[in-house]
Nucleic acid binder design. Structure first.
Lengths: 365, 365
DNA sequence: CGACATACGTGAATTGGTTACATAAGTGGA
DNA sequence: TCCACTTATGTAACCAATTCACGTATGTCG
């Protein structure tokens, strides 16, 4: 239930600040009159709001446009460089960090390899180093990082603690959000990697126009992330989408059978070339995948199913059989598309999560 | 995305009207000062709001309290009888209609049997007759019915049309909401029965304190309804929760095996008495149920799983083995409870859905 | 250089809300 | 019966946010 609070006059200003800010960010740079028109507010109100935002450092005046008719209008722009957020993927064999401004423009990447057998403390140190290097390398002051989000495999509870990890040694029980908060002394969040990848697709990828999304992250292990109404649905324990653990679904050994003796890329390549055995194996893998995916699709009836992660790069060689099997299994199968992002999806989703936090807590609402 | 509109002063009044109305409905009857205290608004504002609501017919002044200290305060109450809603279950072999006031108090029930083989038009006529009889019998004028909602088995799309029904003859394609709208000339909604039953449990049943709920309706056929954030999650095509159609899940023939030669009630009775064969059959049924339920639970990771419908009345004889199998299948199995409502759950959920519509559309927000 | 277009600046009016304080209308005890 | 006490009501002054109206400023174009 939405907690409904009474409103005095200052509520109006809050609402109109949000409206104006949103319009300004969409427009990039705009005049008072333009903002008044798109928001439906009077020019005077927009001006008052922008004055306030200017004092708080979120908005700056830019030089007026030249060559236009009439008196030149003052122009304003959102100060995307007023603050920054960091999104980090703490993966099995790599750390990926992204630094983004308040518009979500990624201005720096940093990447580091890490052994899959590395103990938790070592992985955490690598993550911290990578995040700090990313920020320092871009010449951004650390105190300007307003929020950090981290994504990792396994089940992450709502406090940002890894409550269960099967793949990473010593990872269960790690308070990822708590530790990440110390990197920059900022608020910090943590979530499951597939969930974040789903968020990324909804933000700037294949799922922009979908509201309910199931994202299946496929690689050595498969996991799923779920968006309901465009928002993360982690579930009570952060375990939503963990369908792979159901024996009947068969995600456990699906990947193992696929690769058996060759690398996954080789198998997909061979299947694309028409190799009978490879085609059969890919089809079998697709079927297993489709069983789990259909369980999710039937449960949630999403607008869209996105396949991402390493194996998704295979493209239609894999997508087609998945679509075929899914259609057999589902009453009304959702559209199936490939992820837009490659390795960066999780970090981009983490950036989005951190931005969500900033927009909620700092910019108000 | 929440469409963010600019606010002028009248927005404040809207917000404060909602706050006041909610406080008044919670309190039942209250004075201006009391409402001011709980809402955080000034007495004057509350008075102005209540004046308006009084003119619109939603609030009435009641005689002041006697015997209290100080000047007697004017007292106000929500006029729950300003309007009514009707909730109808259009089931396989019965129609159940409930008439409720704006507080959701059910003031009349009406029930009619209908043959499972009855063609669609006959079932629809029975539904209309039952709904009208319910309202007429309570002495409520038909024009005071502000909204109607109907629940039925099968997949109901977001326009309220039955897009797929396996059990009821000729039911696929019926525009249930459209037809129900003609009964009273009111707005009308339609949804899947399990979804509505879930809503009922969340409103006044076993799931009041849960936010994400999976409700499994078990009887001759099993279906599921899903609540996310306390709200209905029908999915893109209204098919969310239709996990039973997945072959691997085995809901298709679970019930058939259970009853085989006896009635379900007899089997549960026998199992309770310790009959080995009956216990074995119930356990097998519970396992099948748990497989499907665990797929839903893993997908959504709900706060609570509610078992309802005819078979759920068996109680712990069935619940216990379901819990046991579920714990084996799920990483972190949700709590499992029995539904609070018997046959009335769907109609009560329909009442809630109709009330939701009224509160949204008529009372504003 | 004047006509035109467009944005800016200011003041009054409106709406909705709050605080402060005098006044009204009960109860309870002397 | 009357007076103190308690609690609610009524009224006035004030504030915050917004809008509208209108005059003024500042550019371009012919």
């Amino acid at each position: 239930m939405t907690e409904l609070r009474p409103g005095d006059a200052s509520l109006l200003r809050k609402v109109n600040t949000q409206v104006t800010l949103r319009a300004l960010r969409r427009a990039g740079v705009a005049t008072l009159t333009q903002l008044g028109r798109v928001t439906g507010l009077s020019r005077q109100t927009v001006e008052a709001v922008l004055d306030e935002l200017g004092e708080r450092g979120y908005v700056r005046e830019v030089p007026p446009d030249e060559g236009a008719m009439g008196r030149p209008a003052r122009r304003f722009g959102f100060r995307a460089d007023a603050g920054y957020v960091v999104g980090v993927e703490v993966g099995g064999d790599a750390i990926v960090a992204a630094l983004a401004d308040l518009n979500g423009e990624v201005i720096a990447w940093e990447r580091a390899e890490v052994s899959g057998d590395a103990p938790a403390h070592q992985r955490l140190e690598a993550a911290e180093r990578t995040a700090l290097a990313c920020v320092d390398g871009a010449g951004v002051a650390r105190r300007h990082v307003w929020a950090v989000a981290a994504g990792t495999s396994g089940i992450v509870d709502r406090t940002g603690r890894v409550s269960l990890s099967i793949t990473l040694p010593g990872w269960t029980g790690v308070d990822l959000a708590g530790l990440a908060g110390r990197w920059f002394g900022s608020p910090a969040l943590a979530a499951n990697d597939a969930n974040l990848a789903a968020l990324a697709e909804h933000w700037r990828g294949s799922a922009q126009h979908a509201s309910d999304v199931v994202y299946v992250l496929i690689g050595h292990r498969a996991g799923a992330g779920i968006l309901i109404g465009g928002r993360l649905h982690p579930g009570r324990n952060g375990a939503a989408g963990e369908i792979g653990t159901l024996r009947q679904v068969g995600w456990e050994d699906a990947a193992r059978e696929l690769v058996k003796d060759a690398s996954a890329a080789e198998v997909f390549e061979a299947a694309l070339g028409g190799d009978r055995e490879a085609v059969r194996r890919v089809d079998r893998y697709a079927e297993n995948l489709a069983i789990g995916a259909s369980a999710l699709a039937l449960a949630i009836d999403p607008d869209l199913l996105v396949l991402g992660g390493g194996y998704a790069r295979a493209g239609d060689v894999l997508l087609e059989p998945v679509r075929r099997h899914l259609a057999e299994l589902c009453v009304s199968a959702p559209e199936v598309v490939a992820s837009t992002f490659g390795d960066e999806g999780v970090a981009i989703g983490a950036v989005r999560l951190a931005l969500d936090h900033v927009e909620r807590e700092v910019l108000g609402l």
